[in-house]
C-alpha cells in the first residue's frame, strides 16, 4: 500500500522517465524539515554519499547502513538563529554549509568533522545582510550581501579541512543581486538575477562585471537557477514566482531563455508549465531537471530542455510534500514531508 502511494504519476503523453523510490529515512525527534541535501563523507575507510537534514535549530548527518536504511551519525545543535537552507558545495567532503536567518540570511556556517581533535565542529564563514549564496565547484562559495551604502559580491575558497583560504570580490552591479547560478562548462563564468529583473554576468577569475541584460517585463522577479553556454549563446534556467498566467504558455514555473551576451537580446526557448489543476511552486534545478513543491502538496519534475513535466508525486495519506531538492550528485531527488520523512527517488 505504501509503495502504491509513493508511485509517481506520469502525465499523459510523456516519456518513460520516472521516479523510483530508493529508500526513505525518518527522524523521530524532528518534525517539519527545513531543507535536505547530500554530502560526501569519509567513514571507515571509504567515501559515502550521506544525507543531511535540517530542522529549524539542528542539522543531522545520515549515512547509509543498508540499501534501504539510514543511521544518524551526528546532530549539530545551532543557536538562536533559525536554519533557513543547506548550501550544497558540490565537491567538498566531510563538510556541510548552512545559511541561518529569519526572513533573510544573516549567517553562513560550516558544519564539519575535524580529524585533528576527533570532534564535530561548526565555524562561522560570514555574517551580514546576505541576499544570495551559492556553492561552486572547486570548494568555492559565492555570496552577495548589501549594506545601506554598498553591495558586496564575494567568493571564498575553502581548504580541504574547511578553512577559508582566500576571498575575491566581484564587481557589484547597481541593482541588488537576489540569486546566483553557475554556468555549466565555464568555470570562470557566473550569472545572477537582480531585484530589477536583469541577468548579470561576471568573469570570476578577474572579478569583472561583463554584462547586464534585462529579462523582460512579462516575467518580473525572475530567479536564475542554472546557466549553460552553447553555440555563442547563454541559456539560463529561470523560475518566475510572480509570473502572470498567459494564454500562450500557461503559468510557467520554469523557463529557459537564450541570451546573446554580445547584444543583450534574448528569446524564450522552453516554457515548463504546471500540471493542470496545480498552482504555486518552490523549486530546485540540477543539470537540466527541475523539481518543485506545488501548493497542492505534490512534487512535480520537469525536463527543462523539453519544457515538459515528466513526473508528479501526489501528496499521500502520510502527508503533503514540503521539500524537493536534487542530490549533489547523480539523478537523485530528495523529497521531504512535514512529519520529517525524507524519501530518496532515482530519476
Amino acid at each position: 500500500e505504501v509503495a502504491e502511494q509513493l508511485t509517481p504519476v506520469l502525465l499523459d503523453g510523456l516519456r518513460e522517465e520516472t521516479l523510483q523510490l530508493v529508500s526513505k529515512l525518518k527522524d523521530p525527534s524532528s518534525c517539519c524539515p527545513v531543507d535536505v541535501s547530500t554530502v560526501w563523507w569519509d567513514g571507515a575507510g571509504c567515501r559515502e554519499l550521506c544525507v543531511v537534514t535540517a530542522a529549524e535549530s539542528s542539522v543531522s548527518l545520515w549515512k547509509p547502513l543498508a540499501p534501504d536504511s539510514w543511521g544518524k551519525v551526528y546532530t549539530w545543535q545551532l543557536g538562536e538563529i533559525p536554519v533557513i537552507q543547506i548550501i550544497p558545495l558540490p565537491d567538498m567532503c566531510n563538510l556541510v554549509c548552512i545559511a541561518l536567518g529569519d526572513l533573510e540570511i544573516a549567517e553562513i556556517r560550516l558544519l564539519l568533522y575535524s580529524s585533528e581533535n576527533d570532534s564535530f565542529k561548526q565555524s562561522l564563514v560570514k555574517t551580514g545582510n546576505i541576499k544570495a549564496v551559492l556553492g561552486l565547484k572547486d570548494r568555492r562559495l559565492v555570496s552577495s550581501s548589501r549594506t545601506v551604502q554598498e553591495q558586496q559580491v564575494e567568493i571564498v575558497t575553502f581548504s580541504e579541512t574547511g578553512r577559508s583560504k582566500d576571498g575575491q570580490t566581484l564587481m557589484p552591479p547597481e541593482e541588488t543581486v537576489l540569486a546566483l547560478a553557475e554556468v555549466e562548462g565555464m568555470r570562470d563564468a557566473l550569472v545572477g538575477t537582480t531585484a530589477l529583473n536583469s541577468i548579470v554576468v561576471w568573469n570570476v577569475k578577474t572579478g569583472q562585471l561583463l554584462k547586464k541584460m534585462h529579462v523582460g517585463y512579462s516575467y518580473p522577479a525572475s530567479i536564475c537557477h542554472r546557466a549553460y553556454s552553447d553555440s555563442g549563446l547563454l541559456f539560463v534556467a529561470l523560475s518566475h514566482p510572480h509570473a502572470k498566467e498567459s494564454k500562450s504558455c500557461g503559468n510557467p514555473p520554469f523557463r529557459v531563455v537564450a541570451f546573446n551576451p554580445k547584444t543583450a537580446r534574448s528569446v524564450g526557448v522552453t516554457f515548463s508549465s504546471l500540471p493542470p489543476g496545480h498552482a504555486g511552486r518552490q523549486g530546485d534545478v540540477q543539470d537540466t531537471w527541475a523539481a518543485a513543491v506545488l501548493s497542492s502538496g505534490a512534487v512535480a519534475v520537469w525536463d527543462l530542455l523539453l519544457g515538459q513535466c515528466t513526473a508528479l508525486l501526489p501528496p499521500g495519506p502520510a502527508g503533503s510534500w514540503v521539500l524537493a531538492r536534487w542530490a549533489t550528485t547523480g539523478a537523485c531527488l530528495l523529497a521531504g514531508r512535514r512529519d520529517g520523512t525524507v524519501c530518496l527517488y532515482r530519476y
Binding site: 564587481m171 565555464m186 570562470d188 563564468a189 554576468v201 568573469n203 578577474t206 569583472q208 562585471l209 561583463l210 554584462k211 553556454s229 553555440s231 555563442g232 549563446l233 547563454l234 537564450a258 546573446n260 551576451p261 554580445k262 547584444t263 537580446r265 534574448s266 528569446v267 526557448v269
Partner: peptide
C-alpha cells in the same frame, strides 16, 4: 534562435566581453 532575433552571435563572447569590460 536566429541572428535576426538575437543579433550577431560570437562563440568567443566570454573572452571578448572580458577584453572590453573595465578591469
Amino acid at each position: 534562435c536566429s541572428e535576426s532575433d538575437l543579433g550577431p552571435i560570437s562563440l568567443n563572447w566570454f573572452e571578448e566581453l572580458s577584453a572590453e569590460a573595465p578591469p
